[in-house]
């Protein structure tokens, strides 16, 4: 059972309080009609699926119900950091800093 820090509640809570919501920082285009089929496919379906650092979204569904972002290692499943929705993708240095 993962332990997840909700950046809104500022608490470490058990995984069962949360729902996963897919990869983070995939912005919905303002005008999807301007997208080609290939671009739209990429938006809909292509995900980075890395072995390692993954930026992803979670919802504190049985808590504050807020969506937030997390950086997690997909090999160890360890959360490196979480941050509020709308915040930019953390830099490598910020992630390293959060590890300590």
């Amino acid at each position: 059972m993962l332990l997840i820090r909700c950046p809104y509640c500022e608490q470490d809570r058990a995984e069962v309080e949360f729902s996963y919501a897919g990869e983070a920082h995939i912005e919905r285009p303002v005008d999807p009609s301007a997208f080609s089929d290939a671009e739209w496919e990429a938006f809909l379906f292509l995900r980075s699926n890395p072995r390692g650092t993954h930026f992803e979204r979670w919802v504190h569904i049985h808590g504050c119900a807020r969506h937030f972002n997390a950086v997690r290692d997909t090999v160890s499943d360890k959360f490196l950091m979480t941050y509020k929705a709308g915040k930019p993708r953390p830099t490598k240095r910020e992630i390293e800093g959060a590890k300590k």
Partner: peptide, 8 residues
């Protein structure tokens, strides 16, 4: 539900 290669 989450992406993982942890085999656990």
């Amino acid at each position: 539900q989450y992406v993982s290669y942890s085999q656990g």
